[in-house]
């Protein structure tokens, strides 16, 4: 990866909360005009990472640079360019949506009022309502509206679709793609709904126990892993000297998840090969249970 193409870069970021290590030596390079998906299990360090790169909290060690400037030495480099919509709300809850949006305008120089109003209509967000009276889903929608309409060069959403129904999620995905086509910029979006969102992203970043374990396009991630199934003796023969991520047995039938290029495999009698979905891959990569299976 070219260093010069990084708009946002972290170098050896570490963060602990007492005895708990939240982030462990995180190195990331995020390019301009790309949408990144951040995937990780609960407690993997997603929010801590987003809090640090948006300068809400500080890392114990390591540096974050934004457009080449250290964000601790030059906080303006991040605050002037970034719109972060954290999962936990940080808005004065008693204010009306309308008022909150007009305050948002003051923080984000590229904020577009017409677009914000259009989004409110599209998502049927009542701008006369107080924030505290919004349902969980509508609070998420409010964050989506503000985050998109802010048109900041770096836009970060922590779990934007939390509490949203399927229709609203689909609307968000469509708005995101249309907005990205109109005004390409850097988006970072964390989510647990991997399968339905994966194709939105240029790259997926997978974080596990405070470490980045993968950063690649979904296409690339999927091309490096596949299922092999068949009679256990034959599957075992095939698995020799291969990296096995997971194995399941049903009587004499064995299904294994293997690292390698599916297209490079020749047909073998008695064995079936097939690709994984991104969500299954995520499960196999981040489930500690499967790690133990591997050791057996």
């Amino acid at each position: 990866m070219q260093r010069s193409s990084c708009v946002l870069q972290t170098k050896e970021i570490c963060k602990s909360y007492g005895p708990i290590t939240a982030l462990n030596n995180v190195n990331l390079c995020l390019a301009e005009k790309k949408i990144y998906g951040l995937f990780g299990r609960n407690g993997a360090g997603k929010t801590t990472l987003l809090d640090i790169i948006s300068s809400r909290i500080f890392a114990d060690q390591g540096t974050v640079t934004c457009f080449g400037e250290d964000i601790v030495k030059d906080p303006e480099s991040i605050t002037g360019n970034c719109c972060y919509m954290p999962e936990k709300h940080f808005f004065p809850a008693r204010l009306k949506v309308k008022k909150l949006l007009s305050i948002g305008k003051m923080f984000f120089p590229n904020y577009n009022q017409d677009y914000a109003e259009r989004l409110c209509r599209n998502f049927q967000l009542n701008i006369e309502q107080r924030y505290e009276h919004l349902s969980r889903g509508y609070q998420s929608i409010f964050r989506i509206v503000l985050g998109l309409a802010a048109r900041a060069p770096i836009t970060i959403f922590d779990e934007p679709v939390l509490g949203l129904d399927a229709v609203a999620r689909d609307k968000f995905y469509l708005e995101l793609i249309e907005e990205f086509s109109r005004h390409p910029r850097l988006f970072i979006i964390s989510t647990h709904l991997i399968d339905e969102s994966a194709e939105l992203f240029n790259e997926a970043i997978i974080i596990k126990n405070g470490k980045i374990i993968r950063q690649a396009s979904v296409e690339e991630l999927l091309s490096n892993t596949f299922y092999v199934s068949g009679k256990s003796a034959q599957v075992d023969q095939f698995l020799k000297e291969r990296v096995v991520l997971d194995c399941q047995m049903v009587n004499d039938l064995k299904i294994a998840v293997v690292e390698g290029d599916l297209n490079a495999e020749k047909e073998l009698p008695g064995l079936s090969f097939s690709p994984l979905t991104i969500q299954k891959l995520f499960i196999h990569l981040t489930n500690d249970q499967t790690e133990q299976e591997k050791k057996r």
Binding site: Y173, I177, E199, L200, F201
Partner: peptide, 8 residues
């Protein structure tokens, strides 16, 4: 991209 909700 918009029709299929995929990255451009």
């Amino acid at each position: 991209a918009a029709l299929y909700r995929i990255n451009p």
